[in-house]
């Protein structure tokens, strides 16, 4: 990070957009906190689809607000945003290429028997322990998992 002070005009020019009227950062922070409350309360309603929407939808909105107002990506050069989007797209390619093998346990002419067994065993163990029993059930699997 051994950056020197750039020629005086450069920083000013880059921040013209918020040079004249300063963004009200505290207001943005307030919105972020309100969103946080919603994302915590959402799951309490107990509807799985609603949980997904409030949890991940709001995460995206929060990230967008931070990127736009705190990181000033919108007044940055266009290619910076494109670069970050490209990196995200690369990760999507990765997940898309890997998911058929890792996420799914059955495909065309092959099955991942080990994973299917693990899921069945795990679900059975969950049932046996009963939902809501918070104490002592997780270590039930611990002996098998502990290596040494």
């Amino acid at each position: 990070m051994s950056d020197t002070s750039t020629p005086a005009p450069a920083p000013g020019a880059a921040h013209d957009a918020h040079g004249g009227h300063e963004t009200n950062y505290v207001k943005i922070w307030g919105i972020l906190l309100a969103l946080l409350v919603v994302s915590v309360v959402g799951p309490m309603l107990g509807h799985p689809v609603l949980t997904m929407v409030t949890a991940f939808g709001i995460a995206f909105v929060k990230a967008f607000l931070v990127i736009k107002y705190f990181m000033h990506l919108t007044v940055e050069k266009k290619y910076i945003g494109l670069l970050l989007l490209t990196m995200l797209a690369i990760m999507l390619v990765f997940v898309a290429g890997v998911a058929p093998d890792v996420m799914k346990h059955e495909g065309q002419r092959w099955t991942n028997t080990a994973a299917i067994e693990a899921v069945e065993k795990g679900l059975k163990a969950n049932e046996a322990a009963g939902h809501g029993e918070h104490h002592g059930e997780a270590p039930a699997e611990a002996p098998a998992a502990a290596p040494h």
């Binding site: 990765f94 290429g97 890997v98 093998d101 890792v102 991942n112 080990a114 994973a115 693990a118 795990g122 098998a144 998992a145 502990a146 290596p147 040494h148």
Partner: peptide
């Protein structure tokens, strides 16, 4: 430490490493 990210017995997946 003996985690099971790539061990199918523990719910991991060795093919994931290959990817």
């Amino acid at each position: 430490v003996g985690t099971g990210f790539f061990d199918p017995k523990k719910g991991g997946d060795p093919v994931l490493w290959q990817h």
